[in-house]
Amino acid sequence: MRHVAVIDYGMGNLRSVSKALETVSESAEIHITSDPKHILDADHIVFPGVGAMRDCVSELRRLGLDDVIREASQTKPFLGICLGMQALLSYSEENNGVTALDIVPGQVRHFDTQRERSGNDFKVPHMGWNEVRQNISHPLWQKIDDASRFYFVHSFYVDPTDAGVIAGTSRYQHEFSAALSQENVFAVQFHPEKSQSAGLQLLKNFLNWDGQS
């Protein structure tokens, strides 16, 4: 029996993520956990998150999970979702600047709220269903059409130093990274657990993934 750890650090609702994983899983056991041992023993790691970056990073440190995530992200199939994606970068502009986990070098930036009112895309958060272009072929994109729509809700976006890690892009105000791939780490800005069939397929692909791209 494979074990999937959904990392719980008090940020947002993990029930939807674990229910979605249960729905697509044929044999895996899904655990919502903040126990470092459970996380390091799991076969697959899901790192979700909703909320603010400062709280996220301080909770991870308080629970001793920052080093656990660093270690797990080196070795196992690892999926970051939304804030769980952003926290993997080096530094975020949110909350007047927060140093993040620095697993994927790069910055987390804010969408521009001062844009011309005539544009359709000045509203922040970027909320709703947007197309994701697949920049690379990857096991997590299997059976998902290019330019499928996924559900986003975020005010910040990731800007990795190495453009080679970008696995998918979307357009809002400008093109931004909607998915990153770095060895055994895959991370998405959208919410697969709220993206109906395309999202469930991505989660299913993740459970079937051995961490090799």
Binding site: W129, A147, F152, Y172
Partner: peptide
């Protein structure tokens, strides 16, 4: 193409 309008 970009963000879709939503029906709720």
């Amino acid at each position: 193409m970009g963000l879709a309008k939503r029906i709720i």
